[in-house]
Design a protein around this nucleic acid. Sequence first.
DNA 1: GGTCAAGGTCTAGTTTGTAGACCTGATCAG
DNA 2: CTGATCAGGTCTACAAACTAGACCTTGACC
Lengths: 128, 128
Amino acid sequence: MSQENLVSIPFVFEQPCPIRDVLDRIGDQWSLLILQVLEHGTMRFSEIERAITDISKQMLSKTLRRLEEDGFVRRTLYPEVPPRVEYELTDLGRSFLVPMKRLIAWANENHRAICEARGEYGVKNGGR
Amino acid sequence: MSQENLVSIPFVFEQPCPIRDVLDRIGDQWSLLILQVLEHGTMRFSEIERAITDISKQMLSKTLRRLEEDGFVRRTLYPEVPPRVEYELTDLGRSFLVPMKRLIAWANENHRAICEARGEYGVKNGGR
DNA sequence: GGTCAAGGTCTAGTTTGTAGACCTGATCAG
DNA sequence: CTGATCAGGTCTACAAACTAGACCTTGACC
């Protein structure tokens, strides 16, 4: 119960931790996907919606607002009727894509290995 | 409703999409954090638990099992009493850390910019 | 007057995550 | 002989997050 337990763990995450702060926002179902879609250029709400076929309007709206809030995305509203809203990456958003694309490349390269691992796990633990 | 809508969107995500398949698993609240913690070497369940102070046992257990299933992590059970279980990264897991560490570095470098963006957003939209 | 935009919001219902009690079974203190 | 303790979970309530789909707005068109 005392601090002694903690001595052996030198890397407890501090609570205002930049990594966690960023990853908690980015690391959700949709953010990475939306950023990747927006790499193709300025897009309207419904275009993004159709690009990511299985996102709900609510989550798209919410996630875009968060990405805007964090400075990854710029939202431009053209007050026409029906309204037109365009989303595009900011410089920050674009710079984020650099490390992220490496991650995506890794995902592509290692997808087979992951699928195989799943298969083996299933064989070993499937009959539990 | 016909295909014509889709013509203008050349990059709809296919459903068995490697990127999505990998990111959907990795991109959750905890996976990235756990992988990063395990970079420090083999660790026991409770050590990971204490490193990530605010994860629930259930989620730790569940996430570790998924990481094991996908081949990122190896689990070794020593059938003692009380039981000892050790987790360590596999080669796949370690190779994933390469692109991931770039992402973490980006997070560290740009955390300030993100916080500033949040501040500005708050000023502009806080009094809504 | 009814319908159709686009970009959302609102509501109800499902899924996912949380906190914390409980389980196991050998060991040890009283 | 009781019962407390250890690690690594699981189980059970409850709370938060997500989903599908109805609805809203406001001009233009039929």
